[in-house]
């Protein structure tokens, strides 16, 4: 299922770094919505989460390796979503995507809420999962049940 270079098709060109349960879910949904998706993970086994029918390109390698990002099509990507479960890795991947490839739409998953403010301070757009859950809980507590 691995193709060396993504053949960009319909929709937006999106590269996803990190194919855990979250990365795989996001990748599948974006592909189903008609976008052209390419996924990078350092573990070939993780990429199996995408399923045999995944229409996008997959790439085994380190997410901040320039050659890997190049092959994954980051140079032509309109957006990159960084979704590994290690904050330091996500930070370095985001730096690579921004500095080496000049991608402007980059979103980074935050695993430890402490990094939310730090990453924002360093100029990264973040998705803070623990905080999103907290917001939901707050809404729940404020509702009538």
């Amino acid at each position: 299922m691995a193709m060396p270079v993504p053949e960009w098709g319909m929709g937006m060109r999106i590269v996803i770094i990190g194919c855990g349960r979250i990365g795989a879910h996001v990748a599948r949904q974006l592909a189903a919505a008609g976008h052209t998706v390419s996924v990078v993970d350092q573990d070939a086994v993780s990429l199996r989460r995408l399923g045999d029918d995944f229409p996008g390109c997959t790439m085994v390698g380190t997410g901040f390796d320039e050659a890997v990002l190049q092959k994954a099509g980051v140079a032509d990507a309109e957006a990159v979503v960084v979704l590994t479960n290690v904050d330091a890795t996500n930070f370095m991947v985001a730096r690579a995507v921004v500095e080496l490839f000049g991608v402007r739409r980059v979103t980074v998953r935050v695993n430890d809420p402490e990094f939310s403010a730090v990453f924002a301070e360093l100029g990264l757009k973040t998705v803070d999962l623990p905080d999103l859950i907290l917001q939901r809980v707050d809404e729940l507590l404020a509702s009538d049940g």
Binding site: V86, A88, T89, F91, E121
Partner: peptide, 30 residues
Amino acid sequence: DDAVNLLVAVLANRHFKAVRSIVRLNDPRN
């Protein structure tokens, strides 16, 4: 882990305004 070293150095420089940082580079390509 170069990713850890990079983040520590960036935090030390920008967040804590540390005087000097020394960073181990495990993979020269980084």
